[in-house]
């Protein structure tokens, strides 16, 4: 019995408890296919973004610019589409432009962080302000709506087999990220860099290039998230995506991704995103005002992370005690 590791199964357990509680509380509205499609649709943007930013978390970095970069990419997409007179070709140009901006931003982050050894926290804190300013300049601080062409609105809303397209995109991106992290050499490099950058460097891994690539991935998924968000809302403005930085980081953290690097899986991060979605959905169904929902969300983070943390600290304390005893 002592070997039974509760924390190992804590994630599926938490999810199960959640679903059961919500089912009991709201039996007619919660446990329906359309509601689950709804939950997945609502987390698809966070889900896609966390698949890219997990690379950054894994190498021990952080990206505070997710929200404003997402907004800037949304603005770029919509601006490009309107520039091409809402043609279908313009949609492709818009998506490409957004992805290019995202990749360039990621590249900038990566290069500044690795070349000058600046904490990622600071660099992305500064660029967050820059992206916000750029969005405001491009939009002249107005809402730009874009309801045409159909190819654009389809990205966020088109349903295939009853599920909207972003859900499939999320699954595709998650599968890609999983493959890269689990099955490729590069994936192993990332865990190595996150575990111990110096050791990774000495064993021949190009830490600098890996780091830059991780930030590029993060930029790309953030850009894709921006495109989808713009399509879902059929508009873009400077404040598009605000609040997403916390949501994405929270999703990762609930899913067991360590912000210190080297620990975490795509599956875990997706679990975190789904839990967040269920949480929002459940609170919504129980008509808890969104301003109060933070209380529950925060407590869930503390409980989810606290379980893991308590075990770690217990082990650490025992270790110190052992050493002290030996000395004595």
């Amino acid at each position: 019995m002592k070997n039974f590791n509760l924390t190992k199964y804590s994630k599926p357990l938490i999810l199960l408890v959640f679903i059961i509680v919500l089912t009991i509380l709201r039996p007619s509205t919660f446990l329906t296919v359309s509601n689950f499609a709804n939950v997945l649709w609502s987390i698809s943007v966070i889900g896609i973004m966390v698949c890219g930013t997990i690379f950054v978390f894994l190498i021990g970095g952080i990206d505070l610019s997710i929200a404003t970069l997402c907004g800037f990419c949304a603005v770029v997409t919509v601006k490009t589409i309107t520039y091409f007179h809402n043609s279908t070709g313009g949609v492709f140009a818009g998506i490409l432009a957004a992805l290019a901006v995202g990749a360039a931003a990621g590249c900038l982050h990566g290069i500044v962080i690795t070349r000058f050894h600046i904490p990622a926290f600071l660099v992305t804190f500064a660029t967050q302000s820059i992206f916000l300013g750029l969005s405001m300049i491009v939009t002249s601080n107005k809402i730009i709506s874009c309801t045409e062409p159909a190819a654009f609105t389809a990205i966020g809303a088109k349903k295939i087999l009853g599920f909207p397209l972003p859900i499939y995109l999320m699954i595709l991106i998650a599968a890609l990220a999983w493959y890269v992290l689990r099955k490729t050499e590069f994936g192993r490099y990332i865990y190595a860099v996150g575990g111990n950058a110096t050791a990774a460097e000495i064993s021949g891994i190009n830490v600098r290039r890996s780091t830059v690539l991780c930030y590029v991935f993060s930029g790309l998924t953030t850009a894709l998230g921006g495109v989808i968000l713009a399509s879902m809302t059929q508009q873009a403005m400077a404040s598009t995506g605000s609040g997403y930085t916390n949501d994405v980081i929270t999703a990762g953290v609930i899913g067991g991704v360590s912000l210190l690097g080297g620990e975490g899986t795509v599956l875990g991060a997706m679990f975190g995103a789904v839990l967040m979605g269920l949480l929002n959905n459940g609170l919504n169904l129980m008509s808890v005002p969104s301003t109060h929902a933070g209380l529950v969300k925060g407590l869930v983070i503390i409980i989810a992370v606290g379980f893991d943390a308590l075990q770690h600290t217990d082990q650490a304390r025992k270790k110190v005690k052992k050493i002290v005893k030996k000395e004595a």
Binding site: I249, T291, T313
Partner: peptide
């Protein structure tokens, strides 16, 4: 005491305290 990483712990309490303010 519990050992939650500072960034995550205070991120959580940031939303908690803000929600309490609204309540």
């Amino acid at each position: 005491k519990i050992g939650i990483p500072e960034f995550i712990g205070t991120l959580a309490t940031m939303t908690i305290f803000r929600a309490v303010t609204y309540i």
